[in-house]
């Protein structure tokens, strides 16, 4: 594949003049995604009379908030040219650890600490193997995916953990109106904790990727790791930190998901690695590394949330939705390539 594409793009196309800022805005992937999101929103509200209910919409955000938290960290990792297939397994392991701790009588702060800690440890293990030892991340994380979920399976077997302390339920089921200091503006009582966390993380990751030196390093590494190395960027350390962050975000997602479900089985979050990657790729992140934006991923998360929620309202079973997700993943990667090829053929 690499040879063929390299062959075809060997002649650079240099435009006579750069496109105007407005033209660039209209032609950008993010604008397209926003348009798609609005279209799906309108289609959903026409298809089901229950769609526009504020509480319903607030519920709909659960379809993407937890997955998007992982997708943000995954975006950085993919831009740097690596991938982590073990995120869903990290959720399973972190959730199992929290379940075991809850059985042992630990209280909410300790449970959250354990969830985040297990995520961090798992991320460190991935990072150690990929960044320090230099193994290919696809195979390593296929291995750790099996290892992490396997440990959860050993601990849990066919049992389930429940009995979390009542205060723990707040992370996945809490509304901001539970707080006295939160402004009780009309319409804002439906905002969930996860929604706020989603927005906060979007801002934090957006600043980290687009406004800091660290963010520039990630792009540099993804575009050319050798060149980055020679320009003094600590390639291995940056990758290690990115794996740590992905682990930590998976741990946080595990806290939210466990709190929302109130129980842990070893199959928890099965297949989420696929959805997190789809979110990143749908958001315009190149799977080969080197390009992508957080704004795109935010919009992609909203699009995917709206699609699955809309299909849910239409009584489409979950496994059929996964067909749509899979198709979406392939089409989103294939269509730009096909269009680019048609355009270059037309101009040639």
């Amino acid at each position: 594949m690499s040879i063929m594409t390299a062959d075809k793009q060997s002649v650079r196309h240099i435009p006579d003049r750069l496109s105007t800022p407005i033209g660039r805005l209209l032609g950008s992937w993010e604008t397209l995604l926003a348009a798609v999101a609005i279209a799906i929103f309108i289609a959903n509200s026409l298809a089901s009379p229950h769609f526009l209910d504020p509480w319903n919409l607030s519920d709909a955000t659960y379809n993407f908030t937890e997955k998007a938290m992982i997708a943000f960290a995954m975006t950085l990792l993919i831009i740097s040219g690596e991938i982590d297939l073990s995120v869903a397994a990290i959720i399973a392991l972190a959730s199992t650890a929290m379940g075991a701790a809850a059985q042992a009588g630990f209280q909410t702060p300790a449970l959250v600490g354990i969830g985040l800690g297990v995520g961090l440890l798992c991320g460190a293990f991935n990072g150690l193997l990929v960044a320090r030892i230099g193994l290919p991340s696809i195979v390593v994380t296929i291995g750790t995916m099996s290892l992490f979920r396997g440990i959860a399976q050993i601990v849990l077997g066919d049992q389930a953990y429940g009995g979390y302390p009542p205060s723990f339920a707040w992370f996945g089921q809490g509304y901001m109106s539970d707080f006295s200091w939160w402004p009780t503006l009309p319409g804002f009582e439906v905002v969930t904790f996860e929604m706020i966390a989603f927005v906060l993380f979007a801002v934090v990751f957006g600043i980290l990727l687009h406004r800091t030196t660290f963010g520039r390093w990630i792009y540099a590494i993804g575009n050319n790791a050798f060149a980055a190395q020679f320009s003094g960027i600590p390639v291995q350390r940056t990758k290690f930190i990115l794996f740590l962050m992905t682990g930590l975000m998976s741990g946080f997602a595990a806290v939210c998901l466990t709190s929302r479900l109130g129980s842990t089985r070893h199959t928890i979050a099965a297949g989420w690695e696929l959805e997190a990657i789809t979110m990143a790729v749908l958001g315009g992140v190149s799977i080969l590394g080197g390009s992508g934006t957080i704004l795109g991923v935010v919009l992609a998360a909203v699009v995917m949330g709206l699609v699955t929620f809309g299909l849910g309202l239409l009584n489409v079973p979950g496994i059929v939705m996964s067909i749509f997700i899979g198709l979406l993943l392939i089409l989103v990667i294939a269509l730009p390539i096909v269009f680019r090829r048609i355009r270059s053929r037309a101009s040639a």
Binding site: S322, I323, L329
Partner: peptide, 30 residues
């Protein structure tokens, strides 16, 4: 998809993984 479109194999087969199993569900009705 890998040959003609140039999609990385891992993404293409991750997508078809869910599509094929989902289609098995559609075929059998569960």
């Amino acid at each position: 998809m890998v040959w003609k479109i140039g999609i990385p194999a891992i993404v293409a087969t991750l997508g078809t993984l869910t599509i094929y199993r989902g289609t098995a569900f559609v075929l059998s009705g569960g």
